[in-house]
Amino acid sequence: MQDYSATLLETRNLTMRFGGVVANNDVSFTLKEAELRCLIGPNGAGKSTFFKMLSGQLTPSSGSITFRGQSIAGAAPHEIARLGMGIKTQVPNVFNGLSVRENIWIAASRKHTPPVSRRITDEVLDKIRLTDRAGDLVGHLAHGQRQWVEIGTVLAGEPDLILLDEPAAGMTDAEVLRTAEIIKEINRTRALIVVEHDMQFIRMIAKTVTVFHQGQILMEDTIGAVMADQRVRDVYLGKKVAA
């Protein structure tokens, strides 16, 4: 973690096919320790599929994924989670029938003793600003708050790499601002990959942006360069791109 120039995550020629559909094609991607990376791209560009392969929900058709030098392609989700990767999925995956506190506690208690788990749970509840709703069932919360609960469960697991798939979706402007704050705060010590459509939000947090298009990486550069790029504009407007 101290050596910020070290590679944390690397994929090589990662490909995912569903029958004849190629969701990800030959994706080679590198992330350094404690880096914050944003992924953008139109619907169907393969961002979520990419996340699912990283987190073990899908086994890649071919190619390799290494996390801290360890090959994780095709490993089970719980094994990858135990290595230090946490993910907030696009469609919120939370324990709807349990209280907010229980959701966070389940995540915190995997590797900690009860007193430490309780302390971490309290800290996370404070961070996601749901302390006063800690006793409520997650299923009863608004969509934006459920997103935070999911982010909270990810934080409570203390992963070194956090994947966030559309964290700001369904949030109010104030909630989006808070989410951006949380992300910057997390990024002081941990690496993140954030998928978002909300360009306003991307501008708030982004340093380096990777653009996905039709399952491949179209470009990778600073936010300014990406926004100015004609190909990226065309992709978002649905024009044909000569890659």
Binding site: A76, P77, H78, R82, N93, F95, I106, R110, T153
Partner: peptide, 8 residues
């Protein structure tokens, strides 16, 4: 899914 993504 959530439980497995948390390492259980």
């Amino acid at each position: 899914t959530r439980a497995s993504l948390l390492g259980y």
